[in-house]
């Protein structure tokens, strides 16, 4: 598909002996913000790792920008924010951003722009280890976006952020998408889902919905996404299963 940035086909992933994804398939349109929603342990992070190309898969395919996930040529096209921040706590925000910029062959200018993009300009000279949890996470986000990637995979980027900052971050995500970046953003907070172009609802490693927020709500017969998620789960349960 021409407009598809990420395509997952029949993906099966086991972590240890435990099956995590069971024949998962989805397509993520280019230049969109796609929300990956589901409860903790549903397989969101595993799917993201598979898309980024760091997860061993049992079967199935993951294609990113027309290349197999993990392909060398995708390295500079991908930005990945892990759940746990991955920045040096004993360097300042600016030093961290400049470190990652240098790693990608970029200048200080791009590093400073990334810091501005995540709203950390005032804290740029602070040691990352001295930042609050939310600032720490944003410092990590700055390092993930410093290379201006075409694909941005963000694992729970708004955890620990106050409502104002969360709102600002979502506006930034929208801005990235408008500039052509494809975003896959995981969350287990349903009120963030309305900000996405599309939603992937995942539970126990299975896709239970893949549509726009409005369509998901309509198909579940409710205006509330939380309730829609519950309705879709219940609708998918076979008789005799416990709820």
């Amino acid at each position: 598909m021409e407009n598809t940035a990420i395509e997952v086909r029949d993906l099966v992933v086991h972590r240890g002996k435990k099956p995590v994804l069971h024949g998962f398939s989805c397509a993520i349109p280019a230049g969109s913000v796609t929300g990956l929603l589901g409860p903790s342990g549903s397989g969101k992070t595993t799917l993201m790792r598979a898309i980024v190309g760091v997860q061993l898969v049992k079967s199935g395919t993951v294609t990113v920008l027309g290349k197999p996930a993990g392909d060398k040529q995708l390295r500079h096209e991908m930005g990945y924010l892990t759940q746990a921040p991955s920045v040096y706590g004993d360097l300042t925000v600016r030093e961290n951003a400049r470190y990652f910029a240098a790693l990608y062959g970029l200048s200080h200018k791009e590093a400073d722009a990334a810091i501005k993009d995540v709203g950390l300009e005032e804290a740029k000279n602070q040691l990352v280890g001295d930042l609050s949890g939310g600032q720490h996470s944003r410092a990590s986000l700055a390092c993930a976006i410093v290379s201006n990637p075409k694909i941005l995979v963000l694992d729970e980027p708004t955890v620990g952020q106050d409502p104002v900052l969360r709102d600002e971050l979502w506006k930034r995500f929208r801005g990235f998408a408008e500039a052509g970046t494809t975003l896959l953003v995981s969350s287990h907070v349903m009120d963030e889902a309305n900000r996405c172009d599309r939603l992937l609802l995942i539970r126990e490693g299975k896709l239970i919905a893949d549509d726009t927020p409005a369509a998901v709500k309509a198909s579940a017969g409710t205006d509330d996404l939380d309730q829609a998620f519950l309705n879709l789960i219940r609708a998918g349960e076979t008789p005799g299963e416990t709820s």
Partner: peptide, 22 residues
């Protein structure tokens, strides 16, 4: 060891140069 402790190697290996180059 710091690269593992701070979790930075995973970002470097995902987005940066090859592991050998890093």
């Amino acid at each position: 060891g710091g690269g593992y402790g701070w979790g930075t190697w995973k970002t470097v290996f995902t987005q940066g140069p090859s592991r050998a180059a890093a």
